[in-house]
Structure formats: C-alpha cells, structure tokens
Design a protein around this nucleic acid. Sequence first.
RNA 1: AGGCACGUAGCUCAGUGGGAGAGCACCACCUUGACACGGUGGGGGUCGGCGGUUCAAUCCCGCCCGUGCCUACCA
Length: 883
Amino acid sequence: MGTDAKSVRAIDPQGLPKHFDAESAEKRWDGEWQSRGTYRYDPARSREETFVVDTPPPTVSGSLHIGHVFSYVHTDVLVRHQRMRGKNVFYPMGWDDNGLPTERRVQNYFHVRCDPRAAYEAGLELEPATAKLRKKPARLISRPNFIELCHRVTQMDENAFKELWRRAGLSVDWSLEYATIDQRSRHLAQLSFRDLFEKGHVYNSDAPTMWDVDYQTAIAQAEMEDRPTPGAFYRIEFGVDGSERAFTIATTRPELLPACVGVTAHPQDDRYRALFGKQAITPLFRVPVPIFPSELADPEKGSGILMVCTFGDATDVQWWRDEGLALRQLVGRNGRLSPVSFGSEAFPSRDAEAANRYYAELVGKGVAAARQGIAQLLRDPAGSASGAAAPLQGEPEPIEHAVKFYERGERPLELVPTRQWFVRLLDKKAELLAKGEQVRWHPPFMFARYRDWTENLQLDWCISRQRYFGVPLPVWYPLDREGNPDYANTLVAEREQLPVDPTLDVPKGYDASQRDQPGGFAGESDIFDTWFTSSLTPQIGSHWLLDPERHRKLFPADIRPQAHEIIRTWAFYTIAKALLHENSIPWKHAVISGWVLDPERKKMSKSVGNTSTPMPLIERYTADGARYWSASARLGSDTALDEKVFKNGKRLATKIFNAGKFVLTQSAQVHPVRDELDRAFVAKLRALVERATGSFDDFNHAQALAATESFFWSHFTDTYLELAKLRVRDDGPGAAAGRGSAVAALRLGLSVLLRLFAPFQPYVTEEVWSWAFAQETGEPTIHRAPWPGEADFAGIEPPADPDSFDVAAACYGAVNKCKADAAMSMGRELEHMAVAANRATLAKLEPVLADLLGATRCRACERRERADLEDGVFEILDPRFAP
RNA sequence: AGGCACGUAGCUCAGUGGGAGAGCACCACCUUGACACGGUGGGGGUCGGCGGUUCAAUCCCGCCCGUGCCUACCA
C-alpha cells in the first residue's frame, strides 16, 4: 500500500455472485493453475531457495478413502505456505503400483492367476470378471500377460487418485509424476542394488526364511505381524534309550513331530539334567534325537522340556544352527507336508516301516489338517506293534497365543529354507540410530517408533520376492557343468547395462544361447520387495546417479510426510538406503500424520469396511471445507471423521467470500492507515501474522489455522468490520479522511487474512484475490503471493495505546450487550473509564461510539436492567484496571 | 509384559503455573444494506482419580484407572 492517497475503484457488487459456487470455482481454478503452471518447480533456482517434498506415493490398490485426503492435505498446507514464503517448491506425485496389492487387485478384478509357465498370448483383452465368471476357477495367464493387466489396472487407479488430488487442491507439480514400476524407478532400484552389491551390503543365502504359503514368497521382518490365534498345548511322551516313556514335552505344533531334530531343557532344570547327552526317541516315528541343555529353554513354560523341529519358530532356527542339528524340512513352499521317507539318511528311524505308515496319514496335508491328523495318531496309534498306550497325555489344552502372519496374509507364516537376497542391516544399528536422530520428527515423539524398531531389529532385510509385478533383481548365476547355479559368483548387471530383465537380457560375457545350459547362466526370476524401490523415493525425485547435478539440488529432501504405521518400513528403509548409498540422511524433517477414525473411534480400514469415500464429502462440504477438517488436526494425532467440522470449514469459506465482497465493494480516497482504531487493528493483525508464521515454523499448521480463524471471526468480521461500517458510511463533513483510513485498513486486513488462509482454503481465497488484489499487486495468483510480513505493515504507525483495539472491541461489545435505552448511561460510564484508561484513545473512539450508540436499537435488550449494564461493562474492562 | 500418546462442556477438539475456552448441538431473540451457508444473547464442565511440589496446579512430579497405537510374546 502506498503512502499517498489514491482512489480505489470499488468492485461493482452486481458483478459478483450472491453465493460462493464452490464446485464451479474448484473446477475453474484447478484448470487455471494447471494451465498457468502455478505449481511448477524451477530447476534453475538454487538449493537454498528450494523446498523439496518426498511425497508418499500412494499404494494404488483401487479404493480411495478420506484418510488419503486427510494426510495429503497436511502436506499440501505446509507446501503452500513454503511456496508463499518464496520457496521454489519441488512437490512430485508418485504412484506405488508395483507389488502385491496390485497383483491381488488384478487377480480379483479379472479373476486370473499368473502361471509363469504359460505361454504369452499376444493381444489378450480381458473384461472385468462377472459374478458368474468368478464361480469358475481362475484363468491362468502368462507372466507377461499378467504384468500387462497390472499396468492396465494401475492406470485406471492412478487416474482416480489424480482426479481426487486435483479436486482436493493439492498443489502438486504434475510434470513430476512417476510410478514405482516405471522405467526410471526400475533403473534406480537396480542401480541401488548394484551400488549395495559393490559396497558389500547385500548377500544371498539359503536359510530358513519367513514364508507365506499362500503368496508363496519370502517376506521381511517389517511385513510380519503377530495375531492372537487359538491353539492348544499337546503333551506328548518321548522315550529315551532303554525307556519308552521318559519325559513329556508340550507343543502347540504336534504336526512337526516328524521334523523333530532335538530335545532341550534348561541346564539348571533338575527334572531333566540326567537326560542331557542321551538320545531321545520320538513317539510314532521313533527317530533318535539328541537331548541338550539350553539357556533359552524356559522351565516355566509348558513342561520345561521341548522338542526342536525344523522349523517351528525362530528359536528352533537358532538351536538348529548352534547345535548343528539335522535338517528335516517337512513343510513345503505350498504349506503342505512334503513326501519324505523314514529309514533314509535324512530321516532315520528305529522303526521305519511304522514311521512311514504313520506319515502316510499326514503327507500332502496342509499344516492345520496335519495337526488334526497327528493328534488322532497320538491319541490312538492304531496298529502300533508295541501295543503301548497313546503318547498323547490327556486332551490338548486350548490356549490363545501370538502367531506370526504376513500383514496381508491369511495363514500363519512358516519357516522354509529358501535362497533369498538380503541387505545387511543388523551390524549397522548404531549408524541407523544416529541418522534417525539427525532427522527432525514432527511430532518429536514419533522418533521413538523409529528408535524402538531399529534397536529391536532381529533380521537382515530380505529383499527378494517370488512374485511377478515388480522390479527384477538384476542378477544371473553361472551354471556349472552339471547345470547347477553357482550362487557364490553372482553375475550382477553392469551399471551401463541397467535396467535389465534377467529373464530376457543376457549377462556380460555370455550370449543368449547359453541361457539355462550347463556352463552357461541362469537368470534370476525374483523381484524386489516393493520397499526396496519405494525406499528410494527421494532419489527417484532427484534422479540420483542418472543426473548428479539435479541430485545435488534435490537431495536430501526437506520433508518426508507419512503415516506412523509405516515408520518401521518406509521411513526406516529410506533412512537405511541413504545411509548405505551416501552416508546421508534422506530428508531433514519427517512429518507424521495421524489416522482418521470412524465415529466409533476405530481406525478406518478397508478390511473393517468403515471407510468413507472422499468425493461425496468434498461435493457436500466443498474442497475448502474438507481441507479445513484435515488441517484442523495436529500432526501425529488421530482424528475422528466429523462432518460438523467439514460443515464449519464450508461456513468459513462462505464467510471469507462475503467479507471479501463487503471490503472490496467499498470505494474511497484511500488514505494511509491513519486513525487510532485502524492502527490498533493493524497492530493486532501484525501480531496474528507473527503468531501464524511461528506456528508454521513449528510445523503446527493447526495452530496457525485456529489463530487465523479466531482472529477472522471475532476481530475482523464481528468487530472491526462492524465498527468500520459506521465510518465508511459517514457522509458528514470531514468524514472522507476517516473513511479512507478505514478502507485502507480493511483492504490490508482482507489481503493479509486471505493470504494466511490461502494454504488452507486455496479455492475461496483465490477467488476473492482475483477480484482486485491480483491486478493491484501484480500477483496473478494468491498462491504465489508473498506470505504476509513486515512489508505489508511498512509505514503504518503503531497505535498510541496498544490496547485501543481491545477497548474499542469491549465498548462495541458492551453496546451490543446492553441496549439503546442505556445509551445515556454509557456516555457516563465511558467518561468514568477514561480517567483510568488512556484519555486520548477514548477521545478518538468517542465519535465512533457516539455513532454506535445512536445507531444501535436493540429491542431485545430493553428488558435488561440498568445494573446488568454496569456490571457488564465493568466485567469487560475490569482486568485492565486490576492492580 | 514394555514403550509412546491421549483422557477438558452432550459431540469434535483448542489451551495455559494465577480469571476454564471454541465450533457444533440445545434454548431465546433478530429477515440490519457482505453474509439466514447469517447475527445477538443464554444454559451447560469438581479439566479421569488420588497424592506431592508451589503463596497458587487443569497445566509440573509420582502412583492408579481408562482408551488407542507401537514393540515383544508360536515350546
């Protein structure tokens, strides 16, 4: 605002709509922003001027819910604020489309299954499966066909997300769109593997691994969860050489009895000390196994003595390794008991014939069925030559215990020895913790999630998956003369060769004819854990090794927004990657949103079926209304879906629209902000700007919104605007200057408030901004206008009395509170106050108050007592005169 | 079982070492010229409980209760 008086042309009220039509404004402005490139990142500007967002690529598995809007709006609010602070914002959007959720969606959508052995069908066109079709067995299609369908489905899903994001007003730079399955992501993921390989951080090994028997793939520790599951303790008698019934073990997995490779108890357990060093004989199968002491055995659990099987749980694996026990793998990759032959070297038995007879009852069964089967055998070993009593002691005792599941799986995980690739992390806990501490977490207590997970990490990161839709591991294995792979001398694709598909491409030094031939090579068919790729999102944005100069400008990122339940996966792996690749942190700030809870305070999730679709909410309450609800929640705190808050947000947008209309339709010779009341208002406004800016600096957008909103309603519309009305309408002699000062302050107030609201309600603020300020300031969009600050208040004198505004507000409040018939006494009371208050301030307010008192006629107040008036006035003003 | 967070009006939530707040809902009143998608006024709370520190505690400390989440828990 200039200091000279100038004429401001009022907007013609006739030219403005009566009501804010949010829906058309949303479509119109979204189109404008896209066509004008309002949110474009400028690669020419320096790192210091740039604000880099490591946007979460949403998992594109089909269904959108309001939780998506919630957390992404938090990010967008921060981003919009940074942009107005003058930052060159890098705000990409990615789609996490590779991996199991997509595969599962494709399987359901088309009712198909991938069969890697099937032949490719060129031009295969499938329609979404009908209910009728679903009753038939799923159609088997080739891996390339399956991947084609994955791409087709993700394309549809991505379009749906994009429509939502744009409607919700996310200020994403859509030229920076990517997918975790696209060419660049695949390239970078394979480069990442190559880099880790060169640095010695990855290895492959054939070892018992957590295995999902339905998906038939290995999974990582981070993807496991414990679920309370009903089970039962089976008490089973074991023999020892020379004694048929020497001791009783307790187990919840009797079906693994044929896989028993040892027996152990605590070394101090007097009940069993005499047994150590002897051979136990398993019942039914009569397999001799060593009895050894172990500190890990808990005398309190079960009977204190237990069988070690390959493999019932992680402790079994440890005993198996430490004691050098035999491997008797029973559960196959499909979760069924594999055929084995007792009496062989691997499965010795004192009575092989009986053992095989028993096992014939179990072979081919799933784990659960086998458990029932063996329980029956243990209870009644019909045909037992010895005629001995049943090995099962009593009836199984039902218990509920924690069982490990794949988070997306339906059956318990099994430990199955398979060859897998791992990233070595267990020896880097200290470095991982140090990097985690360098990141600033918002809210800070979220760091505890990261710390706890890192400290308790048990396994290296298993990164290979036996699935289809993902990034292939860029490796081959040389085949020896017998055609056996040499895993110790893996052929990793050269950097220049990447990206590759080892099932199609050929390693350096070989030609295609040598594929799967003795002396030739075999291509790896595994793909990466999807986190292996998505842990590179900062590098996918920066292009990393593909464009080192760009990388320097975009890495590390400024913020990583994400949900708290994936701190152990996404945040953890991203930090790990940045550490291993560049000894860096991936971002400076981790910004953690809470969850959306349903009205019963349950987490919204697809499986529970309590999700809300966002589009209808946006249509009912407008995008600005939905954003208001999102932004009202602090970071990290879970929030109930409450339509009342949406409604309030819509109401705020309406009020902004109407207040804007009023202010901008006032014409005047605009004078500098000159009068005491106006200067007092500006001082308040200035304090608000400081407050809101400080809140944003603290990543507390909710506080910034609350402060701005409260100021807007109570100070701006309810008080200042009402006080100003009387002055802008004053046609009396000498009123022009006062009117000018008032209009100048009104316009300044509107301009500042619009900008403070812009990150939260981008549509209505843009709409009002466009009426006059866009042209006056030369900033065509409010979203690139400068964040309010000292420049807005330059040349405006502070008020003579810092409390003037409050006095005026109190007087106005008092006038509203009491009634016109008290006007005479008001005058007296004010005079009384003036003695103690600032006489000069009051003198300036007097004309205003006189106007007010003259103008106010409130019939409702007429019933009020004179005493109430006095009490009311003193009540309001009393704190000011308190000792 | 450990860790973290939360517990404030009927609901959703702010907030602070010194007067207990907002919005919605409810009640009464007002079609005033930006706005009835509005305005004015009102009722309603031992700030989860018990101790402690302090002149003073809803706020700081301890214990307990309740809720949610994260870890751990397959003999």
